[in-house]
């Protein structure tokens, strides 16, 4: 009986001491901040398109930090999912089709002679990339446009087109070579397509 009590006593004592140490350390060495949200936010494409179901990229970053799936961002596509998976050390999963599909880079263009100057697109634009005033023609600053599509819906006269950013001689770049004995690898498509790199 005494041994049992002694054992329990010693364990309790140890626990108390260690608990005290940790408690003290927790107060003494307390640090603020949750940088993981910032890190996640930095990886998101900042289109602020809301396709993930959140009003902007930062809210989605916060949602991811709270455990939401990382595959809800179509503008970022697989590259962003991969980067997030690396950061959070989770499995990279394919893009969730419910939130849209990955498309080529696009910008909004207003057909200016059809624009009635209603300013609705200006209000919708999350990055202030549309210029114009009431009853004046509006225009999109192409450099600032993130291609988020948000201005298309509100336009009462449907004068906004999403135009794919084409390739010019200045922006053109070499393709990635096809790899080892490219011609001989055609038959083994399954071997390469299904794999998700780590």
């Amino acid at each position: 009986m005494l041994t049992v009590l002694l054992a329990i006593g010693i364990l309790v004592l140890l626990s108390l001491i260690f608990g005290a140490i940790l408690g003290y350390a927790n107060v003494r060495f307390h640090v603020e901040g949750d940088p993981i949200v910032d890190q996640i936010d930095a990886l998101l494409p900042q289109t602020q398109c809301g396709q993930c179901g959140h009003p902007g990229c930062r809210p989605y970053a916060e949602a991811i930090a709270n455990g939401e799936a990382i595959n809800h961002c179509p503008p970022g596509g697989q590259a962003t999912i991969q980067a997030l998976a690396d950061l959070l050390d989770v499995e990279a999963i394919p893009l969730d089709g419910d939130h849209g599909t990955e498309t080529a880079k696009r910008v909004a263009v207003i057909r200016e002679d059809e624009c009635i100057g209603c300013t609705k697109c200006i209000q919708a634009c999350p990055v202030d990339a549309i210029l114009g005033a009431a009853k004046q023609m509006h225009t999109v600053i192409a450099d600032e446009c993130t291609g988020c599509d948000l201005c298309v819906e509100p336009c009462p006269v449907d004068c906004i087109d999403m135009v794919e950013v084409g390739v010019t001689a200045k922006t053109w770049s070499w393709d990635k070579p096809q790899g080892i004995a490219a011609t001989s690898l055609n038959i083994i498509a399954t071997d390469r397509q299904t794999e998700v790199a780590h």
């Binding site: 004995a181 001989s184 038959i187 083994i188």
Partner: peptide, 9 residues
């Protein structure tokens, strides 16, 4: 088994 071109390799 990996369905590579045996001869080439």
């Amino acid at each position: 088994i990996r369905r590579r071109q045996v001869g080439f390799f």
